[in-house]
Structures are given as structure tokens and as C-alpha cells.
């Protein structure tokens, strides 16, 4: 009997709640300030990628949904101490909506690659989810909310891509360390489970 690690639902709610807190904590760390402080480049998107890489698609996305719900409810958890319903009315709404989707993408790829965590695949997963998916949604948000043309929105977004690529690599390095220190989260890759080895020996 193989139990898929994600089926341990008793741990899901605590994992989701704890990780929402982690994303909030990572948002406190200031990194570089672009445009004189308008958009702080913080570790917050690192938290988004890590949620997927550590918790997988479903729990990772839920952690970000809970995080956004806390922001909507009025906690100042976004980078720069911002929060409340107002942030969803602004031009960065695409990125906010993108948080859970990006976490899902990173998680889906990471958990599909399975155990053991391989750095190269991890970087691929983090870049696809944390950079491509997140920024695509952010750009859509800019087009719809800030009335920018797609080309101008892409140009505006491009400033943040290098930072997020760096964060994607950091995410993979961190995830590698975390999965090594706390095993059991990643599903076994097909063909490497003990059961198939036992069958082969029959």
C-alpha cells in the first residue's frame, strides 16, 4: 500500500497556516527598492515559490490563498507593510492573483519530479512557476488595470525578472536543503519505490 504523501490531510491545515505565516515573515525582509521605494524587491516572491516547492501544488496554492485572505482581511503582510482590500484595487493585482497560481505551478512541477529533490529540476520548476507564470499574470493585471499595452506592460515587468530568477535559484537551493532535513513531503518518483524493487526480486 503506497500512501501518497499529500493524502495526510491531518497535517494540511497546519502546514497551510504555517506557510502563510512564512510568506508574511519573508515579506518583511527588504532587499532592493526599485523606483525609489514604489516596488520593494523583497523575499516575498521567494516565499511564493517555496510554498509550492515544499508543500506541493495543492497545499502551496492554499497557503497563498490563505495569505491573500489575511491581507484582504486587513493584515499588513505585503512587502512594505501594505495590506487591506485596497491593494487588490491597484495595478499590482495581477501579481497578487498570481501568487497562488505560481505556487501551484512550482509545486506541480516539483512534486512531479518527485523525490529525491534534484537541484536542476528544482530550478526549472521555480523559474517556470515563480518567474514565467507569476509575471505573465502580473502583466495581464497591468494591461487590464493600468491600461498599458502588452508591450509596455512587459517592459515594466522586465525590471523585476532578473531579481526573481535569482530568487528562483535561491528557492531551489533552499528547497533542496529543506527536503533533505525534513523528508517525506515529496512523492516517490515512479519506478523508484521499494515495492517495484520487491516485485523485481520475485
Amino acid at each position: 500500500m503506497t500512501t501518497h504523501p499529500e493524502a495526510h490531510t491531518r497535517r494540511d491545515i497546519p502546514l497551510v497556516a504555517i506557510f502563510a505565516g512564512v510568506v508574511a515573515a519573508l515579506g518583511v525582509f527588504p532587499a532592493i527598492n526599485a523606483f525609489g521605494g514604489a516596488v520593494p524587491i523583497t523575499a516575498q516572491s521567494l516565499g511564493v515559490m517555496l510554498a509550492g516547492a515544499i508543500l506541493g501544488p495543492r497545499r502551496g496554492a492554499l497557503a497563498l490563498v490563505v495569505f491573500l485572505a489575511l491581507v484582504a482581511i486587513g493584515l499588513p503582510l505585503l512587502a512594505g507593510g501594505r495590506g487591506g482590500l485596497g491593494v487588490f484595487a491597484g495595478p499590482s493585482v495581477g501579481y497578487l492573483v498570481g501568487f497562488p497560481v505560481a505556487a501551484y505551478a512550482v509545486g506541480a512541477l516539483t512534486y512531479a519530479f518527485g523525490a529525491p529533490y534534484r537541484l536542476v529540476w528544482g530550478i526549472v520548476a521555480s523559474v517556470v512557476g515563480g518567474v514565467v507564470v507569476l509575471h505573465a499574470l502580473g502583466i495581464i493585471g497591468l494591461v487590464l488595470r493600468a491600461d498599458l499595452s502588452v508591450r509596455d506592460a512587459i517592459a515594466a515587468d522586465l525590471v523585476f525578472v532578473p531579481g526573481d530568477v535569482v530568487k528562483a535559484v535561491v528557492c531551489a537551493l533552499v528547497a533542496q536543503g529543506v527536503h533533505a532535513a525534513y523528508p517525506g513531503l515529496l512523492p516517490e518518483r515512479r519506478g523508484t519505490s521499494p515495492r517495484s524493487a520487491a516485485d523485481a526480486s520475485v
Partner: peptide, 16 residues
């Protein structure tokens, strides 16, 4: 971040 997350995961276990 690695120690932070590992400790956070153990906290989640305690909470569970």
C-alpha cells in the same frame, strides 16, 4: 531560510 522552514515544518507537526 532552511532552518526557518525546517523549524516551521516541525511546528506544523506540533499544531497537527
Amino acid at each position: 531560510v532552511v532552518p526557518l522552514l525546517v523549524r516551521a515544518l516541525h511546528r506544523a507537526d506540533d499544531l497537527g
